[in-house]
Design a protein around this nucleic acid. Structure first.
Lengths: 238, 238
DNA sequence: ACGTGATTCAAACAGGTGTTTGAATCATGC
DNA sequence: GCATGATTCAAACACCTGTTTGAATCACGT
């Protein structure tokens, strides 16, 4: 029977962490459904039954993989934003500052004890588009507060952008961030172009923030009721 | 034995198409690895062995799911771009026009015979960040030409943006597009905010193109050698 | 030293996986 | 008509899945 309280006193040696690290890496490489418990326990060099003993089930394991990192990450984002807002007094922040609060904690995670955080970030970038039911439970819990706080901050930073337009632009922003986090695998997947400095998270930020800020600040498109009357230059099918 | 030539003369009634449609839908809902052949054949109302008879293997099936749609889609993009470049004479296109050539064929696919194309688009949006080995073979083949052509077109449209910067901005652009294609599932996954008109592909374009064009046209960030000497406003850890 | 509870381990569990087989069915050409 | 090849079908194949079991091992308090 596993100990009901998770006190660190004479706790599990490190098998739990070994399992979490192995699962993190394999989930990133192969995806969630395609990774077997046997592959995880083999990589972690622990017994097969250890996963069910320490976590209860495979689903509980993946849940803990995300809980462990996502909680601190999003809390850091909220703290960062709160500090920026405090420093600004009552004045609204710039979109660049809001994005900075969103992204900087990611960079800090990307250089934790030897590459563990970087692996998780690439996993997270992929998880945001995973259809697994587990994600539909885990992600909203962690992201709910962050999205609401940042939506408010962006609305104040961009008072001229209508609310619905802003929601969509946040949608696009998350997409670009997810791709950036997932590494340049996706781009290399598609093209032969290779981007330099893909491992340098700070360099990515210096490229990503101006890009997204310009998009967020763009003038709102005209005439956006349900169905626009005219198309741009669309002719017959291509 | 399956017929070696795939001539439409008195061909397979429609089992192949039924299988492809069912696979498309289930892959989108559950992902590739989590979808069993038995689930596919049950939804398609065909015998289990039909998949291996008509396609050879599960991997060959998913390959054909993508081949069938991705070839025409990317060819339409190339044709669209060629036509725009012809109409422009020798002059460079605007970034908006280049994006339009990239995205408009997607819209046309999204309203094909009753929702089939729309399902595939959501699947595609997810596939771009899937780690499955199959994707690492299928996607580059289809996207190679498209990325190269559009990279050239964007480089001409944005002569002031350095090449490496442009590659990264295309990376971000693909990310935002993938999210937009995957539907607002991802955003609802993260937040409670719901975006209206998510099913109207044209409305999405009218929001997505100005956003991306503004990002692509943004002034390039300063001092981006390998490791930048100064950070923007980064202080201690959050 | 013993005992107690946490942890490991090998083995088995029931069920699902992709794939193959060989006979049955269908449609066609002669 | 029959023969031929394509397609369907039910059944089985060998293998892998997540989970459970019960004994063995370990670490510790008394």
């Amino acid at each position: 029977m596993p100990p009901l309280d998770r006190e660190p006193t004479r706790g599990s040696p490190d098998t739990k962490d070994r399992i979490l690290a192995a699962a993190e890496a394999l989930f990133m490489e192969q995806g969630y459904a395609a990774t077997s418990l046997r592959a995880i326990t083999a990589k972690a060099k622990v017994n097969l039954a250890a996963v069910n003993y320490h976590f209860g089930s495979k689903e509980a394991l993946i849940r803990e993989v995300f809980d462990r990192r996502l909680g601190p990450l999003n809390q850091a984002r909220l703290d960062y934003l709160s500090r920026l807002e405090f420093e600004a007094g009552g004045r609204a922040l710039t979109p660049e500052k809001v994005l900075e609060a969103m992204i900087t904690p990611v960079v800090q995670l990307s250089r934790d004890p030897l590459k563990r955080g970087a692996v998780f970030l690439r996993l997270l970038g992929r998880a945001l588009s995973e259809p697994a039911d587990t994600m539909k439970q885990v992600l909203p819990i962690h992201y709910r507060d962050v999205v609401l706080r940042f939506k408010d901050a962006l609305a104040r930073a961009l008072p001229e952008v209508p609310e619905q337009e802003l929601v969509w632009r946040m949608h696009f922003t998350f997409g670009a961030m997810a791709y950036a986090m997932a590494g340049n695998d996706a781009l290399q997947l598609i093209t032969t172009c290779e981007a330099d400095g893909a491992d340098d998270a700070e360099a990515i930020i210096r490229r990503l923030v101006p890009f997204l800020a310009a998009g967020l600040k763009a003038p709102a498109p005209q005439g956006l009721r349900t169905s626009p009357p005219q198309m741009t230059t669309n002719r017959e099918a291509a």
